[in-house]
């Protein structure tokens, strides 16, 4: 929890460090930089990890619960 709190505080402190103007964001708008680049394919893998591994979270894998074990 302490690590998580430090990460959040550090992230908030980062906010505003960088200024990239809208006309400079052509590369940032590339679909390969989207997170994730292919959400449906990623969701398929994330569901498997959610069922087959003991940890979960922080990866955006939503969806419904299941009795999959």
């Amino acid at each position: 929890m302490k690590v998580a709190a430090l990460l959040i505080a550090g992230a908030l402190a980062l906010g505003g460090c960088v200024r990239v103007r809208p006309h400079e964001r052509q590369t940032l708008a590339h679909p390969a930089l989207a997170q994730p680049p292919w959400p449906d394919a990623q969701a398929a893998q994330d569901h498997v990890y959610q069922v087959r591994e003991g940890s979960e979270g922080a990866v955006g894998a939503g969806g419904g619960g299941c009795g999959c074990n």
Binding site: V20, T27, E56
Partner: peptide, 28 residues
């Protein structure tokens, strides 16, 4: 019965013209 409460904080920062930094914290 099984109950779940999940909270998530996501932060994304543009680091320069070519990249992003993401931080995600989730508690369940």
């Amino acid at each position: 019965d099984r109950r779940e409460h999940r909270g998530v904080v996501s932060f994304t920062q543009i680091v320069d013209r070519r990249g992003y930094l993401d931080l995600v914290v989730e508690g369940v």
